[in-house]
Amino acid sequence: MDWYMILKAFIVGGALCIIAQILIDKTKLTPARILVAYVTIGAILGGLGWYKHLVDFAGCGATVPLTGFGNLLAKGAVSEVQSSGLVGAFTGGIKAASGGIAAAIFFGYIASLISKPKIKKQ
């Protein structure tokens, strides 16, 4: 196991979260807007080919935060464009990110079947 890589994932992932936390606390941005900003910025950086360097450096520290989700969408679109042209711009993004999206929808549905919301006890 590559412990150095795990440490880098910790630091980069944590740092991305700190930036978002500062945005939440210092500006009036709601969490939904911050998620949108992160995914959009990730897709733009991914499209420019810059986000790849962060992924090479920190692995899951770069792919697990939502910027990584945006990067995955953009990267998928670009590589699909290379293989199948304009249609690829539309199919590539979701195809690359389908695992996470499908899992979230499916597990979300299952969770709603088996569980009920409860009040925050705190």
Binding site: A32, I34, L35, L66, A103, A104, I105, F107, G108, A111
Partner: peptide
């Protein structure tokens, strides 16, 4: 955790599961 659990894909999943419930 605030943004610590929001920004990773766990936050995305939570934001789908919680309205479903």
């Amino acid at each position: 955790a605030g943004a610590g659990s929001l920004i990773p894909i766990t936050g995305f999943a939570n934001s789908i599961v919680s309205p479903a419930m």
